Simulated scan of single mutants.
Amino acid sequence: MNEKIADRSMSQTVRAQLALRDMVLSGQLRAGERISELQAVDITGVSRTPVRMALVRLEDEGLLQAIPSGGFMVKAFSERDILDSIELRGTMEGLAARLAAERGVSARQLEPLKECLGDIDQLVQQDPVSVDAFSSYVALNARFHALLNELSGSSPVMRQIDRVAALPFASPSAFVMAQSALPEAHQILVIAQDHHRTVVDAIENREGARAEAVMREHARLAVRNLRLALRNRTHLDLLPALALATASVDK
């Protein structure tokens, strides 16, 4: 019985965590805005204990900051914060790719990754790429990165990648929709897909250093996408979370 209660509490914590994270990243909760436990209970419909745990988890992710008077505040992010988060993801995904290459993976293990590459190829062949195609790319790109990280065979590495990818603007698809309306959209997708193919080739040939370097460079595409999105400000509505950082990034 106690086990069931613990499972239910964990499920409610995750539910509250996802709901509150979505509100921050969608711009419904703005930088500097205070969130109390009671407010979070009202927002999520979850009881106070799991809500308290959810708020602490979001603090660990860097989205919230505990304040001395009680409750939490939505954090703002400097340009350095964003760039460091992207660099950290690239470092961790590079490590995952290197481990996969050095430890070796079978042709069967690579099949899902290659199938995913084929699906992405069909989208990249469109020029211009439709908004619907970009939406599909977000899902396929997330799947590619997840499959790639699993090939490392390292639970600790995968856990840390999940943690860093939860940071604002750090996920592999953080800026994909914001770039969809840019003139450079197709070119960026072509470069990203070339990185995807190159890292799979490096893993298949057991070239650890090459695989690691490609994934670190691949993460830096997000930096380029951020700057392009900021330059073309008419499309920032495709990335509401940028309200958390626009002021500092534009300096």
Rank of each mutant, 00 (worst) to 15 (best):
M1N: 07
I5W: 13
D7F: 12
R8K: 10
R8L: 13
S9T: 11
S11M: 15
S11Q: 15
T13N: 12
V14D: 08
R15T: 08
Q17H: 07
L18D: 12
A19L: 11
M23V: 11
M23F: 14
L25Q: 06
L25R: 03
R30P: 07
E33V: 02
I35E: 03
A40P: 04
V41L: 05
I43S: 00
T44C: 03
R48P: 07
R48A: 12
T49S: 13
R52K: 12
A54R: 04
L58I: 01
E59Y: 06
D60S: 15
Q65C: 13
I67L: 14
P68S: 04
P68F: 11
K75S: 04
A76L: 11
A76C: 07
F77K: 00
E79G: 05
D84Y: 12
S85A: 11
I86W: 06
T91N: 13
M92A: 03
G94N: 07
E102S: 04
A107Y: 11
L110V: 01
L113H: 02
K114C: 09
L117P: 00
V124H: 10
D132A: 04
F134E: 02
Y137K: 08
V138E: 11
A139I: 11
N141Y: 14
N141H: 14
F144Q: 06
L151R: 07
S152A: 08
S154Q: 05
R159C: 10
I161K: 04
A165S: 15
L167N: 03
S171I: 10
V176A: 09
Q179F: 03
Q179L: 13
L182T: 02
L182I: 05
P183S: 10
A185S: 04
I188D: 13
L189N: 02
V199P: 02
I203V: 00
E204K: 05
E204W: 06
N205A: 14
R206Y: 05
R210I: 12
R210A: 08
A213R: 12
A213S: 13
M215C: 00
H218A: 05
A222W: 12
L226I: 14
L228G: 02
R231E: 12
L238G: 00
P240L: 06
L242V: 11
A243G: 13
A245H: 05
A245G: 04
A245N: 02
A247H: 14
V249S: 02
